[in-house]
Design a protein around this nucleic acid. Structure first.
Lengths: 197, 197
DNA sequence: GTCTATAATGGGATAGAC
DNA sequence: GTCTATCCCATTATAGAC
């Protein structure tokens, strides 16, 4: 039959949406089956259980988000512009980060769940550090600034922005955190593109 | 009413510890009763239910953490030193913030749970903004920098540091985020004589 | 491969004796 | 106020027909 893998894909797709909306602990096999339209046995035919299915879904989400980061960070030739662009991108603050929100859950202790999430954070920190390194090499960064540490702080600002927005039920909290970090970063970067010898 | 509070206090104390360790969704009334040593009916005698008890526990945690913030931010006369001191305080990164970690849970939608958490974040942002405002008034902050936005970004760095540390199972992720933010902040503040924090 | 039926466990709350 | 006993329901997973 041509429709091979149809049910499996439907299960993964439903899981991706439910994990984004409710997190891991609050997403039950029943919810997944209802949303995907699959029958009871199908989940356990295609996957070992809930965590195995969630791992498959998170693997896809992680890949999507790494691609999105690459697209944004490669869009501008100027590294400082690219980093500021990534930092200030609009984000659905009240929904939370599809991967980062799982860090608070006990399920992060399961290696199969943690792996795709950690892969994303390592990737985004590495890519930011690389572009900040370009800026540093061009003498555009204040002396003594470590690109890896600055990258970590910027990723943290975004993840913390989600936390603040959800905790105070206010999407503007994310925008304030982004704006503050952008101002700090601008203050320690030379603003002009080009040769600074 | 005399002799009041022994069992009630034990229930709240047990709940504070369990919320810090496991979050809200994974803390069950059974766990609370086992840890507190109270019998089954006591929880529902003293509280309306799980969320009511959790609210009481979070109210206490929020007050404790606001006091801790005040102590740190008032310790140094110099506002920039005080803010850097707060930012770089050692934190138990893998355990997560006792309040911030709940922001990712569905329970944050319940007003009684969200209120003490939001109160903490509003407090710490307000106190940081006040001290950064002192620095700005003294001409110690780069022009055009908004104290409220910088405060939001610093709180976000800490919350995001917890997320990164847990997601990558690496406490050093928190320290890198803190160090990066401290470097950014120092770069936009006029140097403090005799102090290298 | 997919379905219906159902088991086993634990979460959250209540009843009522003492 | 505190205890024991119990209820109802959701979660996660399995069994076995088709």
């Amino acid at each position: 039959m041509y429709a091979m893998g149809q049910t499996r894909e439907a299960l993964i797709e439903a899981t991706k949406h439910l994990l984004a909306e409710d997190g891991y602990g609050s997403t039950s096999p029943r919810d997944i089956l209802a949303r995907s339209g699959a029958g009871q046995g199908s989940l356990y035919h295609h996957f070992r259980g809930k965590s195995d299915l969630a791992a498959a879904a998170l693997h896809e989400v992680s890949a999507e988000m790494r691609t999105a980061v690459d697209d944004r960070l490669d869009a501008a030739a100027d590294p400082v512009v690219a980093v500021l662009d990534w930092l200030q991108a609009p984000r659905d603050a009240l929904r939370g980060c599809r991967l980062g929100r799982l860090a608070a859950e006990p399920a992060i202790g399961e290696a199969v769940i943690a792996a795709p999430i950690a892969a994303y954070f390592h990737h985004v920190q590495g890519r930011l550090a690389a572009r900040l390194g370009e800026a540093a090499a061009a003498g555009r960064l204040t002396d003594g600034m470590d690109p890896g540490e600055v990258a970590a702080s910027l990723v943290a600002v975004v993840q913390g922005g989600y936390v603040l927005a959800r905790a105070t039920d206010d999407p503007a909290a994310m925008r304030r955190a982004q704006a503050g970090a952008a101002a700090l970063l601008r203050a320690c970067c030379r603003p002009v593109e080009g040769d600074n010898r």
